[in-house]
Design a protein around this nucleic acid. Structure first.
Length: 514
RNA sequence: GCGAAAGUAGCUCAGGGGUAGAGCAUCACCUUGCCAAGGUGGAGGUCGUGGGUUCAAAUCCCAUCUUUCGCUCCA
């Protein structure tokens, strides 16, 4: 455990030290759970996104991409269920430290009174036998009437505070009813707080005409509302998919663990539209396909596992997570959800527009079912980065810090190093090599310090190749190429460099492992 | 949000009432022909922020912000 904490700390500080991830607004002491991608981080992130995009869109002729706006019509979020499902008022008991939904506390309390009434009724029934008139008893018995009035009062007040969103009155209601915490038994409550999942904002320059908007909490809805547009203009036939990458925003109650859970994050989602009834086989298909994509990067098969959901969200009929072994344990990296026709049906209901597909084979209209794959780009970044960071003990009793990023994802593919800086001919040839390679790969140049130290610097930065230009290079046009992971060197022709590097960093070479 | 710990140079940290230190990194020059830490010199910090106590606060007290860990929540 201590080891893992240690490891995680090293990941965070290495990410900063080598220009991968900075805390947002650091000069102002940072902004909680918001991070910036730095000069190397932005490259790694882009490479991961490209790797996903190529695997999903380019390699599947029935999947296309879109880039829907972050702002969406506010009704979108009513239809999707985000407005209602995440508006719960919460209250904490200060003694037990337990958190409850304030409305549930009141409802439970009301339920208890109702049960008392039922108990009284049952008792009376037993006592009076066949002569018992339940309706009469309920409308005349003093205890029952008193309790019923209590229930009605509670219902009235609860409705009122909920409609008015009056949090102070909500707390007062709980205090007035004398509700105690089931765990601590105390009435020591905090104020009622509203946790909104979505960030609100305003559209419109002047305050009067402004319209309330939300920043999207998931990219999926942009795909659903565009479903028919894409289907028609792209002449797509079911089954087909729409992919999208982009920022999403969630006001997490607890947002922590570096870039694992952020308030602003990036998703890579694909919604696959299918015939109702076929969701079982497509769920299986995408489960396997997505795992293969992960395994192609070679982060180690043991580091992945599926976690099937037993408790399902309101829209799903099956769900699984692909979990990855992060430094702080197995955590969700990607979700695969069978979303049924929930979303399209909802948007159909709220918009009044028909969002259906005409199947020419069946000669019938239907609302397609949806199979979703949704991966967090930032989480994937963290998975790749934390897995790559290693400290090796070498034979000469030194340790080597090396970032073993999959070469296809590495921000810089090769560093060109003149063996000695003072030799102008070496410098000149090095720069010529860079001029040639930079059309195909992102490359860098380093002439500072002894070459051994330069190797180590590139190791720590994750650069898969170092190309060293020496005196011999001037005579026979060969250089040494050093491999990051093995530290082995080969003597190769300068003309062959491009092909050698390409073989190791080309997306094709990696995706073919799927 | 609650509890605990922490915040001093880019990184890792020492110091602990009298106005700042180390190692590494960085920059310049020298040295260096293949796996980090050889030389010389330089730059870099009002010790997270704000207030209080004191003749004097990085050091003590309070508040606040941020981070980490644990709870809690999670589409």
């Amino acid at each position: 455990m201590a080891n893992n904490d240690d490891k995680f700390k090293k990941v965070i500080s290495h990410a900063k030290e080598y220009g991968y991830v900075f805390q947002s607004s650091e000069v102002y002491d940072g902004l909680s759970a918001v991070y910036d991608y730095a000069q190397n981080g932005v490259e790694l992130k882009k490479n991961i996104r490209d790797y996903w995009w190529k695997a999903m869109v380019q390699m599947n002729d029935n999947i296309v991409g879109i880039d829907a706006a972050i702002f969406m019509h506010p009704t979108t979020w009513k239809a999707s269920g985000h407005v209602d499902a995440f508006n719960d008022p919460l209250i904490d008991n200060k003694d037990s430290k337990k958190r409850y939904r304030a409305d549930v506390l009141v409802e439970d309390f009301r339920e208890k009174i109702l049960q008392k009434i039922n108990k009284d009724v049952a008792k009376a029934k037993k006592r009076f036998g066949d002569a018992f008139d339940e309706n009469e008893f309920r409308s005349t018995n003093g205890n029952v009437l008193r309790r019923q009035k209590q229930i009605d009062d509670i219902t009235e007040r609860l409705t009122e505070v909920q409609e008015e969103s009056d949090l102070a009155a909500f707390k007062q209601l709980i205090l007035d009813l004398g509700i105690v915490c089931p765990v601590s038994g105390s009435k020591n409550w905090t104020d009622v707080k509203q946790f909104n999942l979505m960030f609100g904002t305003k559209l419109g320059a002047s305050a009067e005409s402004a319209m309330d908007l939300y920043l999207r909490p998931e990219t999926a809805q942009g795909i659903f509302v565009n479903f028919l547009n894409v289907q028609k203009t792209g002449r797509m036939k079911i089954p087909f998919g729409i992919a999208q990458t982009g920022k999403a925003f969630r006001n997490e109650i607890v947002a922590r663990q570096f870039i694992f859970r952020m308030r602003e994050f990036e998703q890579m989602e694909m919604q696959f539209f299918i015939k109702p009834g076929s969701q079982g086989e497509w769920f299986k298909h995408w489960k396997e396909a997505r795992l293969k994509w992960h395994l192609s990067l070679g982060l180690g098969e043991d580091n992945y596992r599926f976690h099937d959901h037993e408790k399902l969200a309101h829209y799903a009929d099956a769900a699984t997570d692909i979990e990855f072994r992060f430094p702080f344990g197995f955590k969700e990296l990607e979700g695969i959800h069978s979303r049924t026709d929930f979303d399209l049906k909802q948007h159909e209901a709220y918009s009044g527009k028909k969002l259906q597909y005409f199947d020419h084979e069946d000669n019938a209209n239907y609302t397609p079912y949806v199979l979703e794959t949704s991966i967090g780009l930032d989480r994937m970044f963290l998975a790749v980065f934390s897995n790559a960071l290693q400290e090796e003990e070498l034979e000469n009793n030194t340790t080597r810090t090396v970032l073993k990023l999959p070469a296809v994802l590495a921000p810089t593919k090769a560093a060109i190093l003149p063996l000695v800086r003072k030799d102008e001919a070496l410098v000149k040839l090095s720069k010529q090599i860079i001029e040639d390679l930079k059309w195909d790969f992102s490359v860098t140049y380093d002439e500072k310090d002894a070459v051994g130290r330069r190797y180590r610097r590139q190791d720590a930065n994750g650069t898969p190749f170092c190309i060293t230009v020496d005196g011999e290079s001037l005579e026979d046009n060969t250089v040494t190429i050093r491999h990051r992971d093995t530290m082995e060197q080969q003597r190769v022709k300068i003309d062959d460099l491009k092909a050698i590097i390409k073989k190791e960093v080309d997306v094709k070479e990696w995706l073919m492992r799927m």
